[in-house]
């Protein structure tokens, strides 16, 4: 993993390597180098298997983290390529031509996070949420509880008591 990192580090200006396990590492790459890095990994370094491709919402930092997790079957190693993009008007280059299956991931990311992948097939076609008009629901600022309270009725007659408050009310109501 370290040798691989050393080979690629300068060419693709990789960030620090996080060695999570001997067989799993994560590196950060800039948007300009992403595609070249993925191609290199896939075609030269044997990382042919796109395990998953997803996003993490770092709302507080105003950024989305895109994680491309690649697997080298021969060496049984995984490399997670991390890329940070601004949340505002989030958009990223498509990789469906490298892995056709990325089309599905990109459709989902568009729908669930609102990250656009121009040129990706059917990227704006409904995936799971037919007729959804609210915020992309996997964004951190979409409040599922608020949504469910607004959408569904609570069962009537339920009431709970906090032990501490209940005991105060019963045993020392004046705080004496």
């Amino acid at each position: 993993m370290r040798a691989l990192y050393d080979r690629l580090k300068d060419r693709f200006q990789l960030g620090e390597l996080t060695r999570q396990r001997p067989d799993l590492g994560f590196v950060t790459v800039g948007r300009d180098h992403l595609r070249a890095l993925l191609v290199e990994l896939k075609d030269v370094e044997g990382f042919t298997h796109l395990v998953l491709f997803t996003a993490v919402d770092w709302l507080e930092d105003g950024q989305f983290q895109l994680t491309y997790l690649l697997n080298n079957r021969a060496t049984a190693q995984d490399l997670g390529v991390r890329l940070m993009i601004p949340r505002e008007g989030a958009s990223m280059d498509t990789i469906h031509d490298l892995w056709p299956t990325a089309e599905t991931y990109q459709r989902e990311l568009y729908e669930m996070f609102g990250i656009d992948f121009p040129g990706s097939p059917r990227v704006d076609e409904d995936f799971i949420l037919e007729g959804w008009t609210d915020l992309p629901p996997n964004r951190r600022d979409f409040d599922t509880k608020e949504y469910s309270e607004a959408t569904f009725a609570e069962r009537a007659g339920r009431e709970s008591h906090d032990p501490r408050d209940h005991m105060k009310q019963k045993l020392y109501p004046d705080g004496e």
Binding site: V51, L52, T54, A55, V56, D57, Q65, T67, L69, P100, T101, E103, T104
Partner: peptide, 26 residues
């Protein structure tokens, strides 16, 4: 795929199910 951020809640959990790739594009 689990991402934690130091809080008591997961930041992100992504489930990679084989059906995801098999039943869609393939």
């Amino acid at each position: 795929y689990l991402v934690t951020d130091g809080t008591g809640y997961p930041r992100r959990i992504n489930v990679r199910g084989p059906s995801y790739t098999h039943a869609m594009a393939l």
